[in-house]
Simulated scan of single mutants.
Amino acid sequence: MPTATNGDVELYYETAGSGPTVAFVEPAGYGAWCWSWLVDALAGPVETLVWDLRGTGRSDVPSGPYDVATLAADLEAVLAEHGTRTVHLVGAGLGGMVALQHAREYGRAATLALLGTTADGSRVDADALRGLQAPRDDPDRLRDSLRGAFSPGVVEGHPDAVDRIVDWRAKDDADPDGWAAQIAATTDFAMADLYEVTTPALVIHGRADAVVPVEAGRDLAADLPRGTFEGIDAGHLVATEEPTVVADTLSGQLDEHADLDG
Rank of each mutant, 00 (worst) to 15 (best):
residue 72 A to V: 11
residue 104 R to C: 03
residue 62 P to F: 02
residue 45 P to Y: 01
residue 94 L to F: 08
residue 94 L to V: 08
residue 117 T to H: 06
residue 79 L to W: 03
residue 119 A to Y: 12
residue 115 L to E: 09
residue 51 W to Y: 12
residue 65 P to F: 06
residue 52 D to C: 13
residue 158 H to P: 00
residue 41 A to L: 00
residue 114 L to K: 06
residue 41 A to P: 01
residue 116 G to H: 05
residue 105 E to K: 01
residue 85 R to V: 05
residue 75 L to M: 08
residue 45 P to N: 15
residue 35 W to L: 02
residue 48 T to C: 11
residue 144 D to C: 00
residue 84 T to C: 15
residue 100 L to Q: 14
residue 89 L to D: 06
residue 127 D to M: 01
residue 58 R to G: 05
residue 37 W to I: 00
residue 38 L to N: 07
residue 117 T to N: 12
residue 101 Q to G: 00
residue 67 D to G: 03
residue 39 V to F: 07
residue 112 L to Y: 07
residue 84 T to P: 01
residue 157 G to V: 02
residue 122 S to E: 14
residue 119 A to N: 15
residue 122 S to D: 15
residue 40 D to A: 15
residue 149 A to P: 04
residue 100 L to C: 08
residue 50 V to H: 06
residue 42 L to T: 07
residue 149 A to L: 06
residue 94 L to A: 03
residue 141 R to C: 03
residue 88 H to N: 09
residue 107 G to W: 02
residue 114 L to D: 04
residue 69 A to P: 01
residue 118 T to N: 12
residue 126 A to G: 14
residue 142 L to T: 11
residue 61 V to I: 04
residue 156 E to P: 05
residue 64 G to K: 03
residue 87 V to N: 12
residue 152 P to Q: 10
residue 83 G to K: 05
residue 157 G to I: 09
residue 141 R to L: 15
residue 82 H to W: 04
residue 136 R to Q: 14
residue 83 G to R: 06
residue 115 L to N: 07
residue 102 H to I: 01
residue 145 S to M: 00
residue 111 T to Y: 02
residue 65 P to K: 09
residue 54 R to M: 10
residue 108 R to Q: 14
residue 133 Q to I: 02
residue 109 A to R: 02
residue 147 R to T: 13
residue 56 T to N: 03
residue 81 E to M: 00
residue 40 D to G: 11
residue 68 V to E: 02
residue 78 V to I: 10
residue 60 D to M: 07
residue 109 A to G: 08
residue 135 P to V: 08
residue 128 A to N: 14
residue 134 A to K: 07
residue 103 A to K: 03
residue 91 G to W: 02
residue 102 H to Y: 13
residue 93 G to Y: 10
residue 107 G to M: 08
residue 59 S to V: 05
residue 137 D to A: 13
residue 53 L to H: 13
residue 86 T to R: 15
residue 37 W to M: 09
residue 151 S to A: 15
residue 87 V to I: 05
residue 44 G to W: 10
residue 44 G to M: 11
residue 142 L to K: 04
residue 68 V to L: 04
residue 85 R to F: 00
residue 109 A to I: 04
residue 93 G to V: 04
residue 102 H to C: 08
residue 103 A to V: 09
residue 95 G to T: 10
residue 96 G to R: 08
residue 116 G to Q: 08
residue 116 G to N: 09
residue 121 G to T: 07
residue 138 D to S: 09
residue 36 S to T: 13
residue 131 G to C: 13
residue 47 E to C: 13
residue 37 W to K: 14
residue 73 A to G: 12
residue 135 P to E: 13
residue 119 A to W: 11
residue 146 L to R: 14
residue 63 S to Y: 01
residue 50 V to K: 07
residue 43 A to Y: 03
residue 141 R to M: 09
residue 114 L to E: 10
residue 154 V to C: 00
residue 76 E to M: 05
residue 88 H to L: 04
residue 49 L to T: 06
residue 38 L to Q: 06
residue 105 E to S: 14
residue 67 D to W: 07
residue 112 L to C: 13
residue 139 P to G: 07
residue 66 Y to D: 02
residue 51 W to H: 12
residue 105 E to M: 09
residue 150 F to T: 06
residue 43 A to W: 05
